[in-house]
């Protein structure tokens, strides 16, 4: 059963703003394994889309596609931003790097993927700005400071390398790097998995604040339904590379339609 058969929706009637992000018909195989099968998603400006599913459901693969780290076997990806046109999967490496640096921020579960662990934290953030062409040392440092502050990172430690920081602090450095250029789109791949519950709440709160104050559009992937429930406006449920259900967050949690979503929601502590 597909998501559309579950509850056929009319096209948007009141929402006149086009989606910021549109992926359609994305397919990806790794050998015999179907990682993504005909996946489509839309995210509107200022919205938080949550993607849930168990390990191997394809949710992180999809997020990496949105960050242009991987190219699908087929599919289309568009961002409604000034000067950004065409299917982004067709861009070459250089164009991808520029586009991502300018418009997309990402926070990984594993800070090693997003940070140079032995460089200073402020240097990690400044690297982002360097890619985008900023050259003045004073500006780099002041912009890095602003981003770290917005991520609620203690500025007294801005020159410490991430390797000397706690997991929660490392995530804040990643977040500061991700938002340094005020991206239109923020991608979050299990941003709080592995953190203590209290630290997790702090990181989620920082994300909520950013979302409220800057209206950043976000896509958050997590297997933790509590995280998704706290963060997301809409939720997409994935299983074995397919979208099995999508809907408003409260509807997915209170009235899940698909057998798999029901099992998932009932299993929540």
């Amino acid at each position: 059963m597909t998501a559309t058969q579950l509850h056929a929706q009319l096209p948007p009637q009141l929402m006149t703003t086009p989606p910021l992000l549109t992926v359609s018909g994305v397919n990806r195989r790794f050998g015999d394994v179907v990682a993504l099968h005909d996946v489509s998603a839309r995210v509107y400006p200022g919205e938080v889309l949550g993607i849930v599913g168990e390990s191997g459901s394809g949710k992180s693969t999809l997020l990496r596609m949105m960050n242009l780290e991987d190219t699908p076997d087929s599919g289309d990806y568009r961002l409604a931003l000034p000067g950004v046109t065409g299917n982004l999967f067709e861009l070459d490496r250089f164009a991808r790097r520029m586009l991502c640096a300018r418009h997309i921020g990402i926070v990984y579960q594993n800070p090693h993927l997003g940070l140079l662990m032995k460089n200073s934290s402020s240097g990690n953030v400044a690297e982002r700005l360097l890619i985008a062409g900023e050259r003045s040392f004073a500006t780099l440092r002041s912009k890095a400071r602003v981003a770290l502050e917005a991520s609620e990172f203690p500025l007294a430690r801005m020159d410490a390398p991430p390797i000397e920081l706690s997991g929660g602090m490392q995530q804040r450095v990643q977040l500061a790097k991700a938002i340094a250029l005020e991206p239109a789109l923020l991608l979050l791949d299990e941003p709080t998995t592995g953190l203590d519950v209290s630290v997790q709440a702090l990181v989620l709160d920082t994300l909520k604040r950013l979302q409220r104050d800057r209206a950043i559009t976000m896509v958050i992937v997590s297997h933790d339904l509590g995280v998704i429930r706290t963060m997301a406006d809409r939720v997409m449920v994935m299983r074995r590379g397919r979208v099995v259900e999508e809907g408003l967050a409260d509807q997915i949690f209170q009235d899940p339609q698909h057998e798999y979503t029901q099992a998932l929601v009932h299993a929540k502590l």
Binding site: L10, P12, Q13, L14, D250
Partner: peptide, 27 residues
Amino acid sequence: SYLPRAGHIWYHAPEGRIDLARAADVD
């Protein structure tokens, strides 16, 4: 928060009427 099985929920918005039973999530 719950999806109806059948029927219509016509909401008369300033822009025109919209069936909440089937409206797009974003609406």
